[in-house]
Simulated assay, not measured.
Amino acid sequence: MKDLKEFNIPFVGLKEGSHLFEYHIDKKFFEAYQFEDFNDANINVKVNFVKKSTIMELSITASGTIHVPCDITSEMYNQEIEGTLALVIKFGLEFNDDNEEILILPHEAYQVNIAQYIYELIVLSVPSKRIHPKVIDGTMNSEALKRLKELELKEEKPVEKEKSTDPRWDKLKDLLTDK
């Protein structure tokens, strides 16, 4: 993760108030995490860093595209993504990131690395089912879709079964109606 030093925010020298940091995320960022689900990425990340006297607030916004295969046809396409993440940074005795919304840094800390939060935001912003836009609008023309249509089950009318019951049950039913 040594390649991700550009995502360090040194907050000791910053004045109280709002500060804006902007980053461009590409495939190299994900290679640092050994994440290979995306063939390419073109994502802009804006971080609004608000420094207050005792706490700091981060608002991270990511928007852009990732180049991924379609889950239905395996055709490559650019999936648009957008996401936001709010994070509060407090100071305590030791580092603690157990809570996903609150980060506790030791009192002697002078900077915070936000690369992990950007990574999680982007990965969680990707839809769980990635479908090529041409599949949705019906203009996709691929071998995989043709094969799926061939293998699709045809709806048939349900066949009614003859009502045949066991004669022993019929005798029991007679007992109920003989009251």
Results as ranks from 00 to 15, higher is better:
73 T>C: 12
147 R>T: 10
166 D>I: 05
45 V>F: 06
144 A>R: 14
124 L>A: 10
19 H>V: 01
108 E>M: 14
133 P>G: 07
88 V>N: 01
22 E>T: 09
91 F>D: 13
132 H>V: 06
179 K>C: 04
175 L>F: 11
32 A>V: 14
108 E>W: 11
119 Y>W: 04
22 E>S: 01
62 A>L: 05
47 V>M: 06
88 V>P: 05
144 A>Q: 04
28 K>M: 10
55 I>M: 14
107 H>P: 03
24 H>Y: 10
174 D>Q: 15
22 E>N: 04
122 I>H: 02
107 H>K: 11
34 Q>A: 01
64 G>A: 06
100 E>C: 01
24 H>A: 12
113 N>I: 15
161 K>A: 13
102 I>R: 04
29 F>K: 07
97 D>M: 09
40 D>N: 11
37 D>P: 02
109 A>L: 13
9 I>C: 05
73 T>F: 11
26 D>T: 03
140 M>K: 12
47 V>C: 05
59 S>D: 15
32 A>E: 07
11 F>C: 09
176 L>W: 02
101 E>R: 12
4 L>Q: 10
122 I>W: 07
33 Y>I: 08
115 A>R: 11
70 C>V: 03
27 K>C: 04
78 N>L: 12
87 L>T: 06
69 P>F: 02
72 I>N: 02
147 R>S: 08
172 L>I: 14
89 I>D: 00
87 L>C: 10
64 G>S: 05
64 G>C: 04
137 D>H: 10
170 D>Q: 13
